[in-house]
Design a protein around this nucleic acid. Sequence first.
DNA 1: GGGGAGAGATGCCGC
DNA 2: GCGGCATTTCTCCCC
Lengths: 245, 245
Amino acid sequence: MDEVERIRAALANQETIVFGATVEVTYQGRAQSYLAPGDRLIIIKPDRTLLIHQPTGSAPVNYMKAHATHSLVREPSGVYLKSSADNGRESLTMQIHRFHFCTTSKLADGLKLRLAGTEREMSDFLYANPHLVEEGFAPLSREEHTKVGFVDLFGHDRNGNLVVVECKRYQADPKAVDQLRRYVEKVKAARGVARVRGILAAPDVSPKAAAMLHDYGFSFARVKPPQRLDVGASQARLHEFSSSP
Amino acid sequence: MDEVERIRAALANQETIVFGATVEVTYQGRAQSYLAPGDRLIIIKPDRTLLIHQPTGSAPVNYMKAHATHSLVREPSGVYLKSSADNGRESLTMQIHRFHFCTTSKLADGLKLRLAGTEREMSDFLYANPHLVEEGFAPLSREEHTKVGFVDLFGHDRNGNLVVVECKRYQADPKAVDQLRRYVEKVKAARGVARVRGILAAPDVSPKAAAMLHDYGFSFARVKPPQRLDVGASQARLHEFSSSP
DNA sequence: GGGGAGAGATGCCGC
DNA sequence: GCGGCATTTCTCCCC
């Protein structure tokens, strides 16, 4: 049985397919692209995600998201993998000039990654340790998704001013200051208060972002995201859900 | 030769390595994570990018960026892939409980993807077809990266007002309006002009973003990004550089 | 299902 | 190298 037949069988059987091949790729959908022939690694997952990787970099050079449909066709001009999704609004055609290797297999895995050091954990940490934001800061709420928007941390300072805190786990950039500014204005409008302070909490701040903070009268609090992953606890909890599909 | 030896040889030989295995992964670096044992697809590229994929989704569940170092070690407790980068600030340990398959190969590819329908092409298109932004719009410059920032399109309207246009290839969201607002204010400050109009050009606009446009007195222009990929020309040009490493 | 926002975002291009 | 920003961003969460 050649590669075409093996891949067809694996597609029908919802296996994980991996092959190396010289391929040429055209894509049309949210954008449009063309990739001239070259050696790439192609992956089709059981959820019908398609990934086409070149020999460098983290990101696939071409791809189709989960739940696409794939068909391998032989035509006079050669062998093609034709993929389609979103009722034909996304389509990808890969001409396979030559197979180098091909593997198919059943892989079983239903586990979730446990991640620590996120922005959410950072705002939780600052809620519990408000002096790290500013001496005298008294948080009222965190992750407020309902009243005034998606404010990370909300409270008042030692002088009774309302304070909006935006947390970033990385060096804060202009976008982060935009966001803080938007939330400060939301709170002003929602509460009818003229003075609302803005504090950006992050491990660092870029030059442009720092200038914006100054322009808007905001403050900066240097805070590193906490990284405390309880592997033991997470492992125990994860194993409770470790039944594979 | 078992999998461990084959992978070691392939690492030394800068080959592309693909294997399926039951693995358990811990990561520490910009964040911290733990992934309990399960079947995954592991890829190591010639540039030493490491990707760990679960059976669903486009994104790797764990990874190391290019130029990491990898070593396969046998210890009394089992076989481990230990990866490190950025002088040890990033590290990943993968315990390999069981190999399911393993492939190594030399893949040669040095070609670049040609992509059409980007924001850049959209601003070029509107520069050439300014009436699509607004009747009477007269563009002065595009992709202005030096004077006032990164304004996509800049000009004046039929009444002589300065106009800043921000292009988005997707449905415009609140972040896009933030960005437009920031650029409008930059132009105001740089030119000392009190009135500068802002126009958001995008195929669609979200409800919140539309409300923000209204609040700030900005306009919306419904424009789709152009998708005209000249495959013939790109193919010819690409083949000139098709010598593989 | 769509909107809003985070991400170990990645990648690209400019200085 | 860093900074600023687009991305076929992807993914999650919540309405």
